[in-house]
Structure formats: structure tokens, C-alpha cells
Design a binder for these strands. Structure first.
Lengths: 227, 227
DNA sequence: TGAATAGTGTCTTTCAGACAATATGCC
DNA sequence: GGCATATTGTCTGAAAGACACTATTCA
């Protein structure tokens, strides 16, 4: 067989989508971005934002596009999670979906529903049930990845603003891991990693001593082992 | 839109394949299974075993089928790695591939080339260059996953026979991590994990004291943290 | 009995985890 | 000066890492 003889239509082909698990911390809770579906199948049900891959974009570009369409954001932390391909996961036809994990700081973000969605909103991860497709499974997978990876990488800063206090970092860990951490041990560890630096700014936040603001040394994610 | 109006052919669809990175330890070297391609594109080049996904099989079933076709093995350690989808990665058409990592003990295995392969063989991972498609990248990804995951899981036993000596386990770590380990520390750690048990068999292996054979307590992979 | 690998224990260092008092800015 | 959060250090226990000698089988 050579190039001329090759027939691209010889095999039946599945459809391929990307689905996004977008996390953010809002009001001290871990939230996830969900849309309400406007069309069959699962019309009216909540689902992950996502959509079909275009023939001229890479998987990551597709994920970035979906994230931009829903949140207006680009250059956020974005990581491929897992590919789900059960035969009957979509009632329309065979659909294989590549899931992505995105972390954003949701301050000053305006959500806009995509074309296939009636609405987009933040939902508490503790309070999610019965989503469309196999999206509950995808969220569980994403949560596990987030909880594991936060312990050996610096991805937590994907959820924080550019300037942050040490208390905010600690709180992010506590929210995601769902357990309290010791303040002295936490700061000792964080300092030993040499990934953040003090600014000479502070955040005044009520009738008490203001907290020093810090920033990441280096915006590259995952360069430093957090372990 | 409802079920009747939905047109599965509305969107142009990519082809989807699975590709397998099959590792084994042979003669104290980490080896990988490669085929020689029989057809265009990349005719005559080495490539990972793999193939198109059938419409009625899951991704994992497709990976299991490919592994069985090349090695005759089933129920081996098999883990989804990553999905590669660059637009031009395959000259035929848009092809997205879901890569899988498989670990096998290659004793008493007979390799058989699949239909699209001229031959199948084991190749030393240190000695691999210029594969078809983006398969070098996939192998690098797989190697990194293997090296990372061996440190916090029990997947190493996927490379070993059912009965093994402690020296064999240590050697597997040394080969994969490409560094020497201290025998006493290694055994202390391995024992503390409570995942293997002594048998009353030994392996006589030359003119010296025979080694006790051990077996895994539990064949489930990844249940125990190796860390 | 010599060759070759199997098998075993102690000490040191490092890191995680428990734990509470002082510092600072604001009203 | 009182309130509220920020900031800081020591001790203990567990695990990692460095290190060398004895045991056993077979030719």
C-alpha cells in the first residue's frame, strides 16, 4: 500500500471531544465549572464544559479554546487528565473524550455560556450529583489528581492570584485536602522550597495585623517538587 | 434538537488508535516491544505496536487486544498513559492516539507480528532512535511514568515472574532507575511494606548459596504505596 | 576450602508532626 | 489598650541513607 491507495474512510471513526474540569476556590470552597445542557442528550442536565475537536487544532488547543469560550481566560494551568472511551458513554454515537484539568483564580471573571449551554455556573464539589454522560467519573478522577498532585507540585498557585498571603496558600491546601494543617509546619515547609518570594506589600484585611504579600519566583508550573 | 434530528455525520471526525509501550526486562536490560512497519507511511521503520479502535470495544479492550495479538498475553499490567493528538502526527489523516503502558515478564513468550507489521522484536530502550510517527515522544513519556511510578507503587512486579528473589526485585529497580541501590536498605524497605511473602522454595543459580523465592501477597497492582 | 551470591543490623541524618507564645496594625 | 490575625522555633519520632561482615551452597 502506498499513499495513493490509502483510503481514509476505510475504518468507521468515533467522534472525539474534550471535556474540561475547571476548578477554582470561591468563598473558601472548591468549586467546579458546570454548564446546563440546552440540547438532547441530557437536555437540562448539568455537564462539564467541552466540545468536539476541530480537525485543525491540537487537543490542548481545543481545551484552551473551550476554556476561553466559557471564562475568557487563557494561559491558565491546564493539564491533560485521562481519556474516557466506553462504548455507550454518549447516546448519540461513539464518542471518545479527552479530559483536561484547569485551575483558575476566579476573581474578576465573567462566565459566558457557550452555544450548547443554557447557562454556566460554579458548583461546590461537595454538592455535585447526577451529571450528564460519565461526567461524575471524570470529576472524581480530576479531584483525585488534584489532591495527589498538590502534594508534590506547585499547581496550587494556579488557583491563587498573582500576589497572595501565606494564609491564603495554606487555606487552599486545607480546602482541597479537606483537613487542617499546622501553620508553623506549613510555613516552614513552604519556605524551605524556595519557590515564593516576599514583596514589600501587605494586605490589610480588617482590624488586625496585615499579612505580607508573596509572589511566585517563577510562573512555570511543576518545576519545583513540593514534596 | 432531539434524538431524531441529531446527525452523527455533522462533524468531520479524526481516526483514533491505541499505541502500546510494552516494557520487559531481558538480560538485565530494559526492553521495549517494537514492530517494523510493512506499509506506508513509514514503511520499514520501527514503531510501537498499535492500531485503530473498533467501534464496539473500549479503549482498554483495544489495548488488551493489541497486546494479545503481539504477545499472546492477557491480564498483564496495563495502564493508560497519555493521548497524543497533534494535527500532523500521522501523514494519512488526522489520527489521535491513546497510548498505554504495559509491563510483562517475557519468559516463555513468543512474539508474533500483527498484520501491519513485518516483524516484532525487543529493543533496548537505551538504543532507540528515529521511530515512526511521534513514537519517540510516547516512549519518553512512558519511561518517565515508569520511573516515577515504580517509586510509589508495586508495578515492578508486573515485570517479574510469579516467584522471584529479592535480588531480582532489586535488579529490576536498578535497571529502570539506572542506579545502584544498597542491598540492606532495599531489603529493609521492601520487607516493611508487607506486600511479598517468603515461599519455602529456593532458586539454585550457580556455585553459591541459593536465594529464597518470594511471591506477591496480592496480585492487585497499585494497592500498596511503595514510597 | 574457595568461590560466589544470600542475608543481616547499627548509626547518622533528615524530615514530618506535635505544640504555644510574641508581634503588629487597626480601631 | 484591646482585638484579630501574622509570625516565629523547639522537641520528638520515623524513615532514609551510609556502611561491612557472616552464612550457605556447590564445585
Amino acid at each position: 500500500m502506498n499513499q495513493e491507495e490509502y483510503d481514509v474512510n476505510k475504518f468507521e471513526r468515533p467522534s472525539v471531544t474534550v471535556d474540561l474540569v475547571v476548578f477554582s476556590i470561591i468563598n473558601d470552597n472548591l468549586k467546579i465549572l458546570l454548564i446546563k445542557r440546552k440540547e438532547w442528550p441530557f437536555k437540562g442536565k448539568l455537564a462539564l464544559p467541552g466540545g468536539f475537536i476541530k480537525m485543525d487544532e491540537t487537543l490542548e488547543e481545543a481545551a484552551e479554546r473551550e476554556l476561553r469560550e466559557e471564562t475568557g481566560l487563557k494561559n491558565q494551568y491546564l493539564e491533560q487528565l485521562y481519556t474516557f472511551g466506553d462504548v455507550k458513554r454518549d447516546p448519540r454515537t461513539r464518542v471518545i473524550t479527552i479530559s483536561y484539568l484547569a485551575l483558575i483564580n476566579s476573581e474578576n471573571i465573567t462566565l459566558k455560556a457557550g452555544t450548547d449551554a443554557e447557562s454556566v455556573n460554579w458548583f461546590d464539589v461537595k454538592n455535585i450529583d447526577n451529571l450528564a454522560f460519565d461526567h461524575n467519573m471524570i470529576i472524581n478522577y480530576a479531584l483525585e489528581r488534584l489532591r495527589t498532585k498538590i502534594s508534590y507540585s506547585n499547581i496550587v498557585f494556579g488557583l491563587l492570584p498573582e500576589l497572595f498571603t501565606l494564609t491564603e496558600v495554606q487555606k487552599a491546601y486545607e480546602i482541597i485536602l479537606d483537613k487542617e494543617l499546622d501553620k508553623r509546619n506549613f510555613r516552614k515547609k513552604l519556605n524551605s522550597l524556595n519557590i515564593i518570594e516576599k514583596t514589600n506589600l501587605t494586605r490589610k484585611d480588617g482590624l488586625h495585623r496585615p499579612a505580607t504579600l508573596y509572589r511566585l519566583f517563577n510562573k512555570e508550573f511543576e518545576l519545583k517538587i513540593f514534596k
